[in-house]
Computed example of a mutant assay.
Amino acid sequence: MPHSMTMPETFTRGVVTTVHQGDCLVSVKPDATFSTVLGSCISACVRDRAAGLGGMNHFLLANQSGSSKDRFGESARYGAFAMEQLINMVLSKGSGRKANLEFKVFGGGNIHAGMNDVGAKNIAFVRDFLAEEGYVISSQDLGGNYARRVMYQPVTGRAFVKRLDSTDSARLVHEELAIAKRQVIKPVKDDIELF
């Protein structure tokens, strides 16, 4: 049965920008809201509390396969690059202090048996990555057997999660399986300084 998308009274959509697989967006605009739909994918939301800005990424796989890693380099579709890219963008546009960062993570659903539980691998990756970097997850909605829509306000850090019905999950499974089988990526055009 489909769920209605009712927002809490204090959560207004503002200007919504969709974050697709491989995207990493940051904003300082008070009315900005980032939105994405996740199956086994992960979205991390990072906010610099002192600077009043934040961002969201969206990645499908924790790591590249051996063949694509050698031929194409890194891509924001993969966890390590996506996480480093988002953290560095928030730090460089914000206060530059790691202690000011707040982390919220979402996704990693096991929405199709044919995905070999990519979601669980993604959850393990994001938790390990943040722990190794010394960051604490302040809020999370991970796992389960469903897709979810996430709306995130980068300036306030407010997030709204809606669990989606089986029709949405089936569409996402189709898209994710096609991408996971392809594993073809575009080379990265810009260099990013890693902290």
Score class of each variant (00 low, 15 high):
Leu142Val: 08
Leu86Asn: 05
Gly107His: 08
Gly96Met: 09
Phe125Tyr: 13
Gly79His: 04
Asp31Phe: 09
Tyr78Glu: 06
Lys29Tyr: 03
Lys181Phe: 08
Val46Leu: 04
Leu38Glu: 05
Lys186Asp: 11
Gly52Tyr: 06
Ile42Asn: 09
Gly73Pro: 04
Ala99Leu: 02
Val173Thr: 11
Val37Cys: 11
Asn116Tyr: 11
Leu142Thr: 05
Val15Ala: 13
Phe34Thr: 02
Glu176Val: 10
Ile179Cys: 08
Ile137Ala: 01
Ala51Asp: 05
Ala51His: 06
Ala124Gln: 14
Thr17Pro: 06
Val37Ile: 15
Ala50Arg: 12
Arg171Asp: 09
Arg71Ile: 07
Ala180Trp: 08
Lys189Asp: 14
Arg149Tyr: 00
Gln183Tyr: 09
Val46Met: 03
Lys186Ala: 12
Arg49Gly: 00
Leu60Asp: 04
Asp117Leu: 08
Leu164Ile: 06
Met89Thr: 11
Ala178Lys: 11
Val37Trp: 04
Tyr78Ile: 04
His174Gly: 00
Asp31Asn: 14
Glu74Arg: 14
Arg97Thr: 08
Gly114Pro: 00
Ser75Ile: 02
Ser35Ala: 11
Pro187Glu: 07
Val188Ser: 13
Thr10Asp: 15
Gly39Glu: 07
Ala99Thr: 10
Lys98Trp: 07
Val28Arg: 15
Phe103Ala: 03
Tyr146Ile: 00
Ile137Tyr: 01
Pro2Trp: 06
Ser65Thr: 11
Asp165Arg: 06
Ala76Trp: 00
Ala80Gly: 13
Pro30Trp: 00
Gly66Ala: 15
Met83Lys: 01
Leu177Thr: 14
Gly73Cys: 07
Ala32Met: 14
Gly157Tyr: 04
Ala147Trp: 03
Gln183Ala: 15
Lys186Trp: 03
Thr17Val: 13
Met7His: 11
Met7Trp: 10
